[in-house]
């Protein structure tokens, strides 16, 4: 893995904003503006030869590290109660909220690499890698559908998993788990109608962050 990092540093130099090795897997972070250039090097350079894109996905860091239940500091009234509905307010201007993560595989060298790129803007936008790896086509459509990240240069950027005419981007952290609309058959109108959802989200197990030092050997904080 060290050799991989050296190879990458040699070829990409300052384009690597950050790099991190954890559980034997290397992650590099690049600027969104550099993504096409970096990916071309990763694919075409003989020493790297990442000829397959295993996976591409969006990521929303809006509620990263925020727990429903304060466990570290007690107050005079005791621990806070886990009463959050698990929904966070949409704050579009937040820096580094969305990221696109690419998982690359080199069949030649039998190595994997994770590339992360934070995307900003309203809506967030990054260049498409479909011209580089043909397999990225549907992955980018999915990331667009679920996170609302635009991929510049994608041949056919349509929604893929959600319903026809769906509104919103369901995997964003500010999108409620139970959704916004539900469907039912309306016998009077004689068709299926959409209406605001009637169910409420119940948090059965609050999100809790605890530091258990026995298992912290492998992980570090996102900032490195």
């Amino acid at each position: 893995m060290d050799t991989l990092l050296n190879d990458l540093r040699e070829r990409l130099g300052a384009k690597i904003v950050r790099d991190k090795l954890e559980t034997g897997q290397l992650t590099i972070e690049v600027k969104a503006a550099d993504i096409t250039e970096v990916c071309l090097v990763l694919r075409d350079d003989e020493a790297l030869a990442f000829n397959q894109l295993s996976d591409l996905c969006g990521l929303d860091y809006l509620s990263y590290g925020k727990a429903d239940w304060e466990t570290r500091d007690t107050t005079r009234t005791g621990f806070s109660r886990g009463v959050s509905q698990g929904v966070y307010i949409d704050t579009p201007d937040i820096e580094d909220r969305f990221a696109v993560v690419y998982h690359l595989l080199s069949l030649k060298h039998n190595r994997r690499l994770r590339v992360r790129s934070f995307v900003s803007g309203q809506p967030p936008k990054i260049a498409s890698v479909t011209p580089i790896w043909a397999g990225a086509n549907w992955f980018e459509r999915e990331a667009f559908d679920l996170f609302g990240i635009l991929f510049d240069g994608h041949p056919d950027l349509r929604r893929i998993l959600t319903d026809y005419g769906f509104r919103g981007h369901p995997f964003r952290k500010d999108f409620p788990l139970e959704g916004n609309v539900e469907v039912r058959y309306d016998p009077e109108e004689g068709r299926v109608v959409y209406q605001p959802v009637s169910i409420k989200n119940r948090v059965l197990v609050p999100k809790t962050i605890r530091q258990d030092n026995r298992y912290t050997g492998s992980g570090e904080s996102r900032g490195g």
Binding site: E22, T23, Q25, T27, S54, D55, C57, G65, V101, H103, R112, R114, V205, T208, I209, R210, Q211, D212, Y215, T216, G217, S218, G219, E220, S221, R222
Partner: peptide, 24 residues
Amino acid sequence: EGYCVPEGEVYAAVEHPKGEFGIY
């Protein structure tokens, strides 16, 4: 409550009958 998993990220893939099945 379950158990807390240390902060970090991981990609684990297995040779699934259909191909590479990965969990990120």
